[in-house]
Amino acid sequence: MDRRTVLRAATVAGGAAAFSGSLWAGAAHAAPAQPGTGPYGPLQAADGRGIQLPAGFTSRIVARSRQAVSGTSYTWHDAPDGGACFTAGTGWIYVSNSEISSTGGASAVRFNADGSIASAYRILSNTNRNCAGGATPWGTWLSGEEVSRGYVYETYPQGGKAGVRRAAMGRFTHEAAACDPDRKVIYLTEDESSGCFYRFRPTTWGDLSSGTLEVLVAGTATSGPVSWARVPDPDGSPTYTRSQVSGAKKFNGGEGCWYADGTCWFTTKGDNRVWAYDAVNQRIDLAYDDSLVSGTAPLTGVDNITGTRSGDLYVAEDGGNMEINMITPSGVVTPFLRITGQSSSEICGPAFSPDGTRFYFSSQRGTSGSSSGGITYEVRGPFRS
């Protein structure tokens, strides 16, 4: 019997129910999520844009790489990646990174209250392979460089102000960031096969110009108590940050990161896992692992992640069959949407509008399979609140 068969058998014997109550409050010590029927039912046939959605949901294209955003003169960037939404007057803003070498940066689309596009513009220029990032409680977007000894840049979705390099947050292969306002720290993932999971403690909450970078320390187990240790040299030169602290736990390709209600959820693409860091009790557990699934795993190629007020997680695939899957508070993992005809792409930047009624994401390389073919979408429908 191989490892996957053994683990799946153990999971089935232990029961399929993964979480009780809210995902945000009850992840610790629970078994990983299992396939099941989602709250919105099965996916329907693909619409005119090649998107399969549950009944009652519709999609539209917001922007295409190298084309002017509808109603504006602004040309959308190549290779759209991580994204987030921000309140802007009676409307909102969707921010998107560009995972292009040397000229990456980030752009924004501003929406009116009725969802029409008001404007589009650049908020960060001439940075390197801006992959994921995260929103801050004070309304800025943290854009990370996915290169060796890359930086985090703090950018301003409203526009009119240049992005600022935040060197104190460490130089490594940055992916996502998630703010924990309760403990006044920012969690950071690292896209390396032997990467680490970090947290940054600003000297003053809301000011990222100085602070302390720490790394999670634990054994090799997939669950149990953890601790944090200071990274001696956040600049990572000549020794990479991930190699400076003995006992730092290694994660296989850190990707998306999302915090809510005492738990930070983060993904690792090398082993198709979604992790739950319980910040209250300082322990980690697995929320999802494709090798622990009974039957065919619906979610593979795990990447960006976001969540909703109802406790649902939405996990995008880089690879797999181009789906965004939900993980519900009851521990069910199920496809929410699928992009057809774009097998050479990946799904990036899932984010909800501030009122939770609209959902944004990008196909980084679209139908062409090239970074110049990126497409950014919006989905509307009866999302549960």
Rank of each mutant, 00 (worst) to 15 (best):
Y277M: 11
F266Q: 01
D285W: 15
F266S: 03
P232C: 05
F266W: 10
W228S: 01
A276I: 09
N272D: 15
K250Y: 05
G224Y: 06
G253E: 09
S223T: 07
W258N: 04
W265G: 02
V245Q: 10
C264I: 11
G262E: 08
P232Q: 02
S243W: 10
P234N: 10
D285Y: 14
D285C: 11
S291F: 13
A276H: 06
T263G: 04
W258K: 05
V245P: 05
A229L: 06
P225E: 07
P225N: 09
A287D: 00
D235P: 00
G247H: 12
Y277H: 14
C264G: 03
W228H: 03
D235M: 11
F266P: 00
T241A: 13
A276M: 06
T241P: 01
A279Q: 08
G247L: 14
Y288A: 07
K250N: 04
G270A: 10
C257Q: 04
A229N: 07
R230P: 00
C264N: 13
R242T: 04
Y240S: 09
A260G: 00
E255R: 00
N272H: 14
L286H: 07
S243Q: 11
P232S: 02
G247V: 06
N252A: 11
K250S: 08
C257H: 01
T263E: 12
W275T: 01
A229R: 14
S237L: 12
Y259F: 13
K269S: 12
W275P: 05
D261W: 08
V245H: 14
T268A: 14
S246V: 03
V226I: 12
D233N: 15
P238Q: 13
G256P: 01
R283D: 03
V245W: 15
D289C: 10
D235G: 09
Q244S: 10
A276P: 09
W275V: 00
V226W: 11
G262T: 06
N272K: 04
P238N: 07
D261S: 11
A260K: 08
L286V: 05
Y259R: 05
A287E: 03
T239R: 14
A287F: 05
G236N: 07
S246E: 10
R273A: 00
N281W: 15
A287M: 08
N252C: 07
A279M: 14
R230I: 06
P232N: 04
R230C: 01
P238Y: 15
P232D: 04
V280M: 11
R242G: 02
P232T: 02
Y259I: 01
V226Q: 06
P225I: 04
V274R: 01
D289P: 05
A279T: 07
G253H: 14
D235I: 03
Y288S: 06
Q244G: 05
T263I: 12
D285L: 07
S237C: 04
P232F: 09
R273P: 00
P225D: 08
T239Y: 09
P234G: 09
V245A: 10
Y259C: 03
I284W: 10
E255L: 12
N281A: 15
V245I: 05
D271P: 02
